[in-house]
């Protein structure tokens, strides 16, 4: 007997969500920001299924971005920032991939990328901004003319326009919309009706989800819709935007999830160290991704001691006093 009849057709495991929706060569957006709420369980599963040639579209990302690039899943990247805060001011595998010309990349800024997702969500071909005027973001096109002919790549990085409502010269930058094939997000709650609730900061998750053709949500827990609908002001996405729901407690580890757990400083420090060395990094993937049979196995490796250390105080939202060195 299925406990959740309303979402029965969308409730699935990590393996099914990835094999059904995350195809070779797809354009993929990931939710979260640097060291918070990265959809890690799905990112690891993408690596495990050896999905290739992903076109990743990001604002400021950290751990999921770096694991996907490091594992060789990413061919093309549009990005504003690759960093893990104080734990890796520049994401190490991202840095190496760019320096070794292993990926095609193009730089934008956070606001620019957020506007591009918003344009996609609104069904607009572009949106204007003042961000980028005078910057080399406007002088260097990362993608070649050949790449620009491919699906899901904008025909130009941007266009300039004079404000048509002004008598004086007043230039704006027009940014092409993004409509990813798939957006993957990690949320705290999904209702048993499919409503999504993200707690803490939402970053650009909602725009990323609404811009995408397909949305995969992992969540800490599935809760009764009577609870979700008691306080709808707190909700982030209505059910009809969601195509796959996967229950994955601690699904953002080693990044943080507000109200549930903090980032794992020990793991982030370990990761930075192994990421610097190709052989060590391969060993890391073997140990933490390929060699793990299930999400439960992964959490068993993290270990109860760390799970308890990073467990958030539910009132404060993080783990006060956590050793974060």
């Amino acid at each position: 007997m299925n406990r959740y009849p309303e979402i029965a057709d969308r409730l699935m495991g990590l393996d099914e969500a990835v094999s059904r929706f995350v195809k070779d060569g797809c354009q993929l957006a990931i939710g979260g920001f640097t060291i918070t709420r990265n959809p890690m369980a799905v990112a690891y599963e993408i690596v495990r299924q050896r999905v290739k040639d992903i076109h990743l579209v990001c604002h400021s990302h950290g751990q999921a971005l770096d694991v996907l690039i490091g594992a060789g899943c990413v061919r093309r990247l549009e990005i504003a920032y690759g960093g893990n805060g104080r734990y890796a001011p520049t994401c190490v595998r991202f840095k190496k991939a760019v320096q070794r010309s292993e990926i095609e990349f193009e730089d934008y800024s956070n606001y620019q990328m957020s506007l591009r997702f918003l344009a996609g969500a609104l069904g607009m071909p572009f949106l204007p901004t003042k961000s980028g005027l005078g910057s080399d973001l406007m002088n260097y096109e990362g993608f070649s003319p050949d790449i620009r002919k491919e699906a899901k790549v904008a025909s130009r990085k941007y266009a300039m326009m004079d404000n048509p409502f002004s008598e004086e010269r007043d230039e704006v930058v027009l940014l092409p919309a993004l409509t990813p094939d798939v957006t993957i997000l990690h949320a705290q709650y999904v209702g048993d009706d499919g409503t999504v609730r993200i707690k803490g900061l939402t970053f650009a998750d909602i725009e990323q989800a609404k811009a995408a053709d397909t949305v995969i949500i992992t969540c800490e827990d599935i809760v009764p819709s009577s609870f979700i609908r008691m306080d709808p002001d707190q909700n982030s996405l209505p059910p009809f935007f969601v195509d796959a729901i996967v229950k994955a407690p601690y699904g953002a580890h080693p990044t943080a999830c507000y109200g549930f757990y903090d980032y794992d400083p020990k793991h982030l420090n370990l990761y930075r160290k192994v990421a610097e060395d190709d052989a060590l990094f391969k060993g890391y993937l073997d140990e933490w991704v390929y060699g793990v049979n299930s999400w439960e196995d992964y959490l068993a490796k993290v270990g109860m001691e760390m799970i308890l250390k990073i467990k958030a105080n539910p009132v404060i939202g993080y783990a006060p006093g956590l050793d974060r060195k």
Partner: peptide, 26 residues
């Protein structure tokens, strides 16, 4: 905050703009 050396083949690649370009503009 983007790179040292050539943009396409940098000696050192950094994190990138993030929101820096945006706040510098606004």
């Amino acid at each position: 905050t983007t790179c040292i050396g050539d943009y396409f083949k940098p000696r050192t690649r950094f994190s990138g703009s993030g929101g820096a370009c945006d706040v510098a503009a606004y």
